[in-house]
Structures are given as structure tokens and as C-alpha cells.
């Protein structure tokens, strides 16, 4: 029933906004392809992210979510297929903000230094750059730690620094790789709301990676369900919940509950039928 929900297929109906990010037949193999030892990370992926959309990539680990973000950012090139961002070949730069799954903070720079690092190209003035950095450090609630080094922060705090760094250049396109995975539940909820507010305010595009079903439903316009080995798109689902979503209890909506159980089911099946998975073939209905 949910699979029948209206999907964006990339065949533009004239009403819809122009595609911002477009992947057509994209494949990527890591490692040595000649002797067959490589991993096919992505096989023939099509994906359309329209202007102003919040799109989540949802799926178990190893299905190529991070690889898609890196290719969209222009950090690595696909082996086959085409990618365009705003109609052009992707190029890294301050127009795109990337929150890396592994934070990637500069260990010898302070929190402020790390955020400023992303602003050098766009804001030449030192004082201005500092003011901008401080504003986003404040946004993620780390003002008291602006002068601390990453080694002095918890995992969740590091992740918030990475988020501040990606947001600070006020990019038109946000690429977020499980940006809330290490953050504690209360802070995560706050950060999710801040992200939604910024995204609404800036009318930016967000491509958001998560393996949390709830988070995907809460944040997204569309959820791209992905499967592993090889990484591929299984289904694109329109969420269709009213925005802004922080003004009411989204989780109590029938649509939320319906989507949630549907997605859970699909992901559980994916994990239990994937021969590479740690839980391959487990019978969850068996008595303990």
C-alpha cells in the first residue's frame, strides 16, 4: 500500500521544482576491479532531489549511502553513469556542506578553528569569520567550548562541531551523513528541530543519511530506501506529513505509524535475508 504512494520518478511533472541533484545509472566499485576483487558499492542508481527537498537515504550499513554523498560532493567520481548538481558536474566547495559520519575534526585546531576552517574561502575578514563561526557554535550549543580542542569533547559534542562547520558556510546543499548518530536522545531532538528550521529558513536542499527509521520519517519529504550488496535504490517513498513538524506530535500521526511499521518490516527483511549480515537467517518469531 505504501509502495503505491506517489513517487518521484524523475519524469518531471511541470508543477514540480527543478531537480537540484540528479543521479542517472550511477555505479561505483571500490578496490581492484581487474582481478574481480573489488566491492560493487553501488549498482545503477537513479536518484532525483528536487529544489528545496529534504531527502533521506535509509538502509542498513554497507548499502552505499556514504558513497552517494561523497560522489554528490564531487570528492570521488562514479565509474559509470552521470551526476549533476544544479545542472553541472559536482564540485566541492562552500555551496555544499558535508557532515561526515566520522566527524573529521582537525585535532590541533580549537572548536572555533575547526568551524572557521570551512569559512576561509567565503569570508575573507577575520573578525567576520569569527563572528559567523561563533554564531553556529552557539546554534549547536557549544559556546562554552569554543576554545576547547576536539580531544576534550565527547563524541556527541564532536558531532555537533562537525554540524556547525557544515552549516556555517550557509550552503545551498546540505549533505549529512548520520549527523545525529552519536548525539544523546534529548540533544538529538533539539538538533533535529534546529536543522529543520534552518532548512526551512534557507530553502536549502538536504540529502540526509540515516539508519533510523523514525528520524527519516520525522525529517524527510522523501525517503529513499536502499539495499545492500550491491548498493541500490529499492523504493522512493513520499512522507507527506505537514510542515512545520516541530509544532505538533508527528509520531502520533497515523501516517507516521503506518510508514514506520512498513519501513521497519522492509529493513528487517533486508537484514535477515542478506547473507553478509550478522543476523542472516535468524528466525525472530521462534520462542526463546
Amino acid at each position: 500500500m505504501i509502495g503505491d504512494a506517489p513517487q518521484h520518478t524523475g519524469l518531471a511533472d511541470s508543477e514540480a521544482p527543478a531537480p537540484r541533484i540528479l543521479l542517472r545509472g550511477v555505479s561505483k566499485t571500490f578496490g581492484n576491479q581487474n582481478n574481480g576483487g573489488g566491492t560493487l558499492a553501488l549498482a545503477n542508481v537513479d536518484l532525483t532531489v528536487r529544489d528545496g527537498a529534504f531527502v533521506s537515504l535509509l538502509g542498513p550499513s554497507g548499502c552505499g549511502k556514504t558513497t552517494i554523498l561523497r560522489m554528490v560532493n564531487g570528492l570521488i567520481a562514479p565509474d559509470a553513469g552521470t551526476i549533476t548538481v544544479s545542472g553541472q558536474a559536482p564540485r566541492p566547495g562552500p555551496d555544499m556542506g558535508f557532515v561526515f559520519q566520522s566527524f573529521r575534526l582537525i585535532p590541533w585546531s580549537s572548536v572555533r578553528g575547526n568551524v572557521e576552517f570551512a569559512l576561509v574561502e567565503t569570508i575573507p575578514g577575520k573578525a567576520e569569520r569569527r563572528a559567523r563561526a561563533d554564531r553556529y557554535i552557539e546554534l549547536v550549543g557549544l559556546s562554552r567550548f569554543a576554545d576547547a580542542y576536539p580531544s576534550e569533547l565527547s563524541g556527541g559534542m564532536k558531532q555537533r562541531v562537525a554540524l556547525a562547520r557544515a552549516l556555517a558556510s550557509e550552503p545551498a546543499i546540505l549533505l549529512l551523513d548520520e549527523p545525529f548518530a552519536s548525539i544523546d536522545a534529548q540533544t538529538r531532538e533539539l538538533m533535529q528541530i534546529e536543522l529543520m528550521r534552518l532548512w526551512t529558513l534557507r530553502k536549502s536542499v538536504a540529502l540526509f543519511v540515516t539508519h533510523s527509521v523514525d528520524e527519516a520519517i520525522l525529517l524527510s519529504d522523501q525517503i529513499v530506501l536502499m539495499g545492500p550488496r550491491p548498493g541500490r535504490v529499492l523504493e522512493v517513498i513520499d512522507v507527506g506529513l505537514n510542515r512545520p513538524r516541530w509544532t505538533y506530535d508527528v509520531r502520533a500521526e497515523p501516517r507516521f505509524i503506518e510508514l514506520r511499521s512498513y519501513l521497519w518490516d522492509r529493513i528487517r527483511t533486508l537484514v535477515l535475508t542478506d547473507p553478509q549480515s550478522d543476523f542472516y537467517g535468524r528466525d525472530l518469531s521462534a520462542n526463546i
Binding site: L75, E121, R165
Partner: peptide, 9 residues
């Protein structure tokens, strides 16, 4: 290094 490339350094 990849992070730095990503911000356009």
C-alpha cells in the same frame, strides 16, 4: 584531507 577538499580548500 578529503574534509578540506570538501570545504573547497
Amino acid at each position: 584531507v578529503e574534509m578540506a577538499r570538501s570545504v573547497g580548500a
